[in-house]
Design a protein around this nucleic acid. Structure first.
Lengths: 192, 192
DNA sequence: ACCAGGACCGAGCAGTCACTCGGTTTTTAA
DNA sequence: TTAAAAACCGAGTGACTGCTCGGTCCTGGT
């Protein structure tokens, strides 16, 4: 057996809670049970640990999205869009740590230096954005969504809304559990 | 003359770009031109510098909001809401660094330790949230906004949307300049 | 002219950090 | 059974951190 999975699990939680700089190798070592030297046996440096954590999170999130959306039987484009939103809200609770990683800001500078980090984050965002705009296109074909609106622009706006709310909740700024129904309701207003 | 303003200005930019932990006293000293010792003559420690930076940002933002909204002549609640949104979009560019500070996540843990930090952030958010829900209430009285909706809930949803978009832009994730008109349009759909 | 007090300085301190390295233990495969 | 490989260990290292402290410089009031 190897400590690698335990290290990644511990690192996921610590990076999510405290951020990259605020998480020390010593802390990951302690939480995972592996000695500090062992961390550097499995990973070249701290940044590589973070990259692997991001990859893992991306895999988990995208996997769940594909599964949830493809499993459900959707009868219209509007239902498709609503399913994506519900999935996002559902996953933000189920994969709390992974979403916290998403929400930790990566400034322009950091992203330029660590392009690999940003690529992982972007592909998670794009997964949802694409699913939303696909749903809108389908909806415009079957008539469940108004024809005049731009799929990509509206997808971005809806995503910003849902993402913004989840972020409030995730960072304990405002409680938003009671708003989930209102979100769907308002999206319907925007789309029909 | 005192280095205090220069220190706060330098700290604002560095904290906004790199975050608290990633900004060193040495860096603030270098950018401001003041010696390291001088920083600790004006401030007790690094955390106090950050707190003063937050206070300054809050003052600037809230001041601008009051000015902009009170100056404009608004004929309906709907116009009031739209003015708040436009102000937010406008300020996010004008006070770019200050907004970056807003967007840097403060996890539950950090916020518990540094309650004063969170209070400043919350009061900025509440400034916009209150302005939005006030506008909705006014709009429901004068008939420009539908009666059925909840002011506080809808204010939160609209704010999440606008805030989410600005955050995308601010952290260079997606360019959203072309979406500003669509934001207003979609808000109108939600409110009428 | 003098002095008190605030502004300013930067070498130095103790602590923390990511990371290395020489070594032991465990696993794997022949 | 044995030997190579992989996993693991933790004391040690140098770079960096926030912060202190003894001192100089500048300014305004008398």
């Amino acid at each position: 057996m190897s400590y690698k999975p335990a290290i990644l699990e511990a690192a996921t939680h610590l990076f999510a809670e405290k951020g990259f700089k605020n998480t020390s190798i010593a802390a990951i070592s302690q939480l995972s049970g592996a000695a500090e030297g062992t961390l550097f046996h499995h990973f070249r440096n701290k940044e590589e640990i973070f990259l692997e954590v991001l990859k893992l999170a991306r895999g988990r999130i995208i996997n769940e999205v594909d599964e949830t959306i493809n499993t459900e039987s959707l009868h219209s484009g509007l239902e498709h869009v609503e399913a994506v939103i519900n999935t996002y809200l559902y996953l933000s609770e189920k994969l709390h740590s992974e979403f916290s990683l998403l929400f930790r800001g990566f400034s322009y500078e950091q992203a330029k230096v660590h392009e690999a980090w940003r690529n992982n984050l972007e592909s998670i965002y794009n997964c949802f954005l694409n699913a939303l705009s696909e749903g809108i296109v389908i909806g415009q074909e079957d008539g469940s969504i108004a024809a005049g609106i731009s799929p990509t622009k509206t997808a971005m706006i809806i995503f910003a809304m849902v993402n913004g709310l989840v972020r409030f909740d995730n960072s304990n700024l405002f409680p938003v559990d009671s708003l989930y129904y209102d979100v769907i309701k308002n999206c319907r207003k925007m789309l029909t």
